[in-house]
Design a protein around this nucleic acid. Sequence first.
RNA 1: GGGUGGUUAGCUCAGUUGGGAGAGCGUCGCCCUUACAAGGCGAAUGUCGGGGGUUCGAACCCCUCACCACCCACCA
Length: 933
Amino acid sequence: MDKTYSPRDIEPSWYETWERNGYFRPSGEGTPYCIMIPPPNVTGTLHMGHAFQDTIMDILTRYHRMSGDNTLWQPGTDHAGIATQMVVERQLNAEGNDRHTLGREAFVEKIWAWKKHSGGTIQNQMRRLGASVDWDRERFTMDEGLSESVDEVFIKLYEQGLIYRGQRLVNWDPVLQTAVSDLEVESAEEKGSIWKLRYPLSNGDGHLVVATTRPETMLGDTAVAVNPNDERYTHLIGQTVMLPLVGREIPIVADDYVDPAFGTGCLKITPAHDFNDYQVGLRHECEPINILTGDAHINDNAPAAYQGLDRFAARDQIVADFEAAGLLEGIDPHTLMVPRGDRTGAVIEPYLTYQWFVDLTREVQPDGRPGGWQAITQPAIDVVRDGRIRFTPENWTKTYYNWLEDIQDWCISRQIWWGHRIPAWYDDAGNVYVGRDEATVRAEHGLGEAVTLAQDDDVLDTWFSSALWPFSTLGWPQDTSELQSFYPTSVLVTGFDIIFFWVARMIMMGLRFMDAVPFHEVYIHGLVRDSEGAKMSKSKGNVLDPIDIIDGIDLEALVAKRTSGLMQPRRAAMIEKQTRAAYPEGIAAHGTDALRFTFASLATTGRDVVLDMGRIDGYRNFCNKLWNAARYVLMNTEDQDCAATHNNFTLGTAERWIISRLQATERAVTDALDHYRMDQAAQAVYEFLWDEYCDWYLELSKPTLQGDASVAQQIGTRRTLVAVLEAVLRLAHPFMPFITEEIWQRLAPLAGVSGETIMTQAFPVAQPERDDPEAEAEIDWVKRFILGIRRIRGEMDIAPGKRLPVLLKHASATDQSRLEQHRAALDFLARLESVDQLNHDDEPPESALALVDSLEIRVPMAGLIDKTAELTRLGKERKRLADDLERIDGKLNNEAFVSRAPNEVVEREREKRAEASAALERIDAQYARIEAI
RNA sequence: GGGUGGUUAGCUCAGUUGGGAGAGCGUCGCCCUUACAAGGCGAAUGUCGGGGGUUCGAACCCCUCACCACCCACCA
């Protein structure tokens, strides 16, 4: 093996080998285990959030594959209608072109070209991350097969009366000029104003004052509402006002919705441009008057003076005209919630249009009769309530219920070009025909050549096809063997941000069309944030490409990457400055394994992940540690007898100890993985490998291998070095696939293991019969002996290499035998020069003291030890023991504690007291002795 | 206006039936000891957000306050 660990030299080639040999494909044997990837959008490249999520899924996938399951991780990408269309449109604009000039067909062709490019980038990124997906099964939401699923579901739901088309007030993005769903609107507080406008009574008898944050909508007012119990206005109910600037006479109506305490208590009603007003309008039979065009300019339903004005220009004009007419009562500053499109940031308009909806609220019996339960929504609630789907962490179920229990119908039509065209056709009379294609529609409805049919121009919401992902990717509506094996899938790994967009809708559609849940478990992970804890986004310029952490990137390239292709180019200067401050040296190469291990160890439940570069450095070092440990093992075992093929060896205490510790580690890792605690699993691997295997076992092996231990013992040690490392590699493989494979290839033969790849080896299972408490106790004694001497050495600033003479006192029979047994290890690890025993009544010479239970270990001070330093050291020890004792006595002297606490707890305290007290006595004596010198 | 999560060492975070406060990184010493200086050995570091309660005993359970973050919601 190379002396230095170099991830870039081992990672890409192993992935190629794995993929070429088909190791990612389901084995076809064992319990099915399936994860559907949340298909990334083909809008560009994967970010740190994807890398995090992919790491979690790959850990689970590799773990289950190694455990013998028939494992499928299904890959694919999402067409992401609006987002992708915007990306390509922006590119067109940059070329001085636009989609309308190009035309629908040519534009869609351009998007397909982009999809190919982006999809390829995503594939490469996933390969670099080591994602063991079955590429042969890769799907895209606009594939032929998936499009067939979409049509099938749409048609079925339409036939069942659960999809309908209607004129409704929807959220309209005037930049995209399409409807969007409630979920795609983000409301935030913004500073604005409240304008108080006078509406003169038609009878000339004064005026009412309405308050509004959107004066321009007054052009579409159809009523003024007051609360029926508001005594100020009851006498006016039923009368009319003359709408200024428009000259329309509109009624004053009474409606409970109006809060008399807010504003003036008079509410202007604009049914076509406000969701609440729409409802009020319905109650009072006011015909909505739409005054806006699709791009939010005033249309010809308004007086000529305002036609063609942008909504905000119209606002200024109208306010000015009110003022000129003496009808402006006042303007107050006001903070209000402004709805904006999540993609465009444009202020969303409630807009009256014909759209398609999935009915999520209508109550229909299973047999089709009305009433009973919400046909789509209720089952989705039930499966979580009764535990057929389990969330981890569990508390996300609350979020899930809250949303479903107050759900609105889902607007699924979008007035864009990229997506699944709605399978509906219209004749000249405006009749709607839903069907697979035009020919089918004609045949089914007996429509001859004479009837012209035009397909609906709209496409479906992206999430409509995403909702079908768990079964559409497996071949539905055909009844495939894949569906039989892998549906319902095992676990969905996703972020909380798409519980509504995606998780809930997959559950709805899965139950409706497969009559079974789409997955048994939902593992919700946190959001990856930058080191400042800020959300990563292109516009903030704090995004990181996982590949740049893997391969490293110099500062100039990173700056260039972050400042190019911005939606708001003026932010470039600031982003550059921040980037130069945060990464003055660019980013060093860390390798995939280190990045993955970092993600794993940060994957605690229900928390966001703050990405700390220092942490990645630390785990890169961990990889290096593993690399070098392997080098040591190979150096001492290659071409030597490791008992791979015979049983002529003996295991010493150290061997039995590390094997015992391995069992505990295997249990810890398996248990953690089974509970989605990737962090605990990673930590268990880390601690075992570094703190036990490297720090102690490798060191303990040295005196055995280099000293005069028996041949059988040396063989046993070599065998153990190899066997334990081989097991750890398998244990760590799901986290660090590349380095474990690289080392395993060389190590496996020495361990007598054959196989083409570690990927398909069995995941380690703890064997209780190899637990060895006696060996653990013994090695624990050895460690404490060595640590005692090291502490003296460290605090006395004695060079680590300097050999020390040691005197022992009060050595028990056990101490004696352990000393004898481990003498070589103690000499080597504690750098002992000599060990001599003192009799019980011997007065020890001036010396530094360490205790292992009752055993006194003394290092004579002559010429070595500084009196003051030793007093300081003993003083600290004494204080620690005295504090301990005080605390314990506090408990034991408390009558209530002794009488009420469980016996075993009291007994444990008594033992602790005895130990502490004995130790303190010796330290005290030693302190006095040194002090007297 | 509802709801959720958080507040533990300088930083990022563990701490799962309430019973001796932990890790990584950073810091401070001593060491290039033939696996590893991306390292070894040793050390320091915390009114566990504030207050109250339950309990023999609280980082953990209950109440309350403060601050931070996020989600949902139709108040002009």
